[in-house]
Structure formats: structure tokens, C-alpha cells
């Protein structure tokens, strides 16, 4: 489509504010971090240019970076399952009930509006061992050995616990998006399927899901990017966990830059987070666009 001179001004008028804000708060900091990542700097003294040494060190000598990347990938997959697929399931259930839809929609949405700190405090108490929290009290009543499950400090469990809490908090947000998308599925499609003898599952699987496929892909990309940069819930709940068993990339970046005062090295981790997010999102979109 050709954009005329007047149209171009209109396009510029509408896109310029977002573009300027995006440039100021996203693009320039990324460039800035990229520059810092080439230096050895403690935040106070002079900066020493080290080229790509920080990046080489990340992949060759850093014993925490690759495990943190692995944890982040696991965490991201868990978020896609919990937020996208469970969110989609909840949207189907919500759209299938004839009454009280608004009530359940609001009820499910409550965790989204509660602050992360409050959610973490609630789950810390629920998963506590001393005093005994509600979750272990119930599990212990079924099997006494389950009284002592260390949800937040067991090296094998704490990453999963943090992933569950984050998934629980945000799944309703995607449920609402899916719910709106499901309402947009034309009735004549579902009616036609019904006439052809399709049951509820077949209608959902063969009619509704393909129709809202682009929404599912968009939500997956949103969750993917959000999870690769996850910080608050895993950090507040586990603090990286014992032995850094639940360390994710963003808290690791914070630790290097602001706790260990290695601003250059922390910036290198930040640049890697940007690159990894870009690569994951691009690959994800390409796969689904090709299938289209």
C-alpha cells in the first residue's frame, strides 16, 4: 500500500508518541547496556574496555549463567503451560457455563490485580513448614510423610513452586483474552459443526481453537517474553534458592550488577537476556507462521 504525503503525516502523528517513548525507555537503555557490557566497571571507578571478554566469560568460566539459563527455559515452558494452556482451558469452561460468568471471571482475575509481594507472602505462609502451612497440613493428613515437604527450599522443588505461583497469578489474564477471542467465533461455524454431528470436544478442537490460533500464538509470545525476564515472584519466593537451584537470568543479572557491583558483567547478562528473548520470540513466530 502506498502512503501519500498527508497519510504519512497521519501515520507519523499516531506512531510518534509510542515510538519516542519506546526509544527512550527501551531502545536507548539496550544500547547503553550493550556499551557497558564491553567494559569492566564496578560502578564507581574508571571503566576498563575489555571487548567481548564479559561474554566469553559468561559461556566459558561462569558456573551460574548456563544453569540460570536452563532454569529460565524450564520456567518459561512451565509458564506457557500454566498461563496459556490452563488459561485457555479456563476460558472454555467459562464460556460453557450458562450463568455466573461475570462472577467467576472476576473471581479468577483477583490474583492478577493483587501485588506480587502480597501473593508471595500468601504462598510463603501456605507452603510454610514452621509454623505448618495449609498445603502441608492437608497433604500431611493424607500421608504423614508429606508434612515435611519443603516447597520453597528443596533444591528439586523450589523452581517448580515459584513457577506455579507465577502461573497462578497470571493465568486469569490470558483466560480473559481467550474468553474474548472465543466469543468472537462465529455462531454459524459452531452450528454447522453441530449439524455435522460434532460433540463439544470436537467443536473446541477442530473449530474454535483453529479459529483463535493467532490469539494463542500471540499469547505464547507474550508469556515467552515475560517469563524469560521473570524477576519478582521467583526472587521474592526463593531468593534464587539454595545452591542457586531456582536462579533465573534476570535476578542473576541484578545480582551481578547491583550486589556484586560488576556493572559491566551484569550488563553483559542483560544483553544476553535481550538477545535470548529476541531469538526465542522470532523462532516461535517463524515456526507458527510457516505452519500457517
Amino acid at each position: 500500500m502506498k502512503i501519500g504525503k498527508n497519510n504519512f503525516k497521519t501515520v507519523l502523528f499516531f506512531t510518534a508518541p509510542a515510538l519516542i517513548i519506546y526509544t527512550l525507555i527501551v531502545f536507548i537503555p539496550i544500547i547503553w547496556s550493550s556499551v557497558y557490557s564491553l567494559f569492566d566497571w564496578n560502578g564507581i571507578g574508571s571503566m576498563k574496555f575489555v571487548g567481548f571478554n564479559n561474554f566469553v566469560r559468561l559461556f566459558t568460566r561462569d558456573r551460574e549463567f548456563l544453569p540460570a539459563l536452563g532454569h529460565t527455559v524450564i520456567y518459561t515452558v512451565a509458564q506457557i503451560v500454566l498461563q496459556v494452556f490452563v488459561g485457555l482451558l479456563l476460558a472454555f469452561l467459562l464460556s460453557s457455563i450458562p450463568k455466573l460468568r461475570s462472577f467467576f471471571q472476576t473471581l479468577y482475575y483477583v490474583p492478577v490485580v493483587i501485588s506480587s509481594v502480597a501473593i508471595c507472602q500468601i504462598f510463603e505462609k501456605l507452603m510454610s513448614l514452621q509454623p505448618l502451612g495449609l498445603i502441608n497440613s492437608i497433604l500431611g493428613a493424607i500421608n504423614p510423610a508429606w508434612y515435611d515437604i519443603k516447597w520453597l527450599t528443596d533444591v528439586n522443588l523450589c523452581l517448580g513452586s515459584a513457577a506455579f505461583v507465577e502461573g497462578y497469578k497470571y493465568m486469569a489474564m490470558y483466560m480473559v483474552i481467550f474468553y474474548a477471542a472465543l466469543l468472537s467465533v462465529p455462531d454459524d461455524l459452531t452450528e454447522a459443526a453441530k449439524i455435522d454431528g460434532a460433540n463439544g470436544f470436537r467443536i473446541a478442537w477442530n473449530v474454535k481453537i483453529p479459529y483463535i490460533r493467532h490469539v494463542i500464538v500471540a499469547n505464547c509470545v507474550l508469556v515467552l517474553n515475560g517469563s524469560l525476564r521473570a524477576y519478582d515472584i521467583p526472587y521474592l519466593l526463593t531468593g534464587g534458592g539454595p545452591g542457586n537451584c531456582a536462579q533465573l537470568l534476570s535476578p542473576y543479572m541484578y545480582k551481578q550488577a547491583f550486589s556484586s557491583m560488576k556493572y559491566g558483567y551484569g550488563s553483559a547478562v542483560a544483553v544476553m537476556i535481550v538477545l535470548i528473548s529476541l531469538v526465542f520470540a522470532t523462532v516461535f513466530r517463524r515456526i507458527f507462521e510457516r505452519e500457517d
Binding site: 510463603e124 507452603m127 513448614l129 514452621q130 509454623p131 515435611d148 519443603k150 520453597l152 539454595p242
Partner: peptide, 21 residues
């Protein structure tokens, strides 16, 4: 160390002691 100490903060630690845990 008392059961569950791994996730206990300073205030809860004092409460645990106060409760004779």
C-alpha cells in the same frame, strides 16, 4: 536446626523460639 528453618526469616525465627518450637 528446627524443622523448616531453611525458609524462616528473622522475625519468624524469634516467633518460633517464643512459641517454644
Amino acid at each position: 536446626f528446627v524443622k523448616g528453618y531453611e525458609s524462616t526469616n528473622y522475625a519468624d525465627n524469634i516467633n518460633n523460639f517464643a512459641n517454644h518450637a
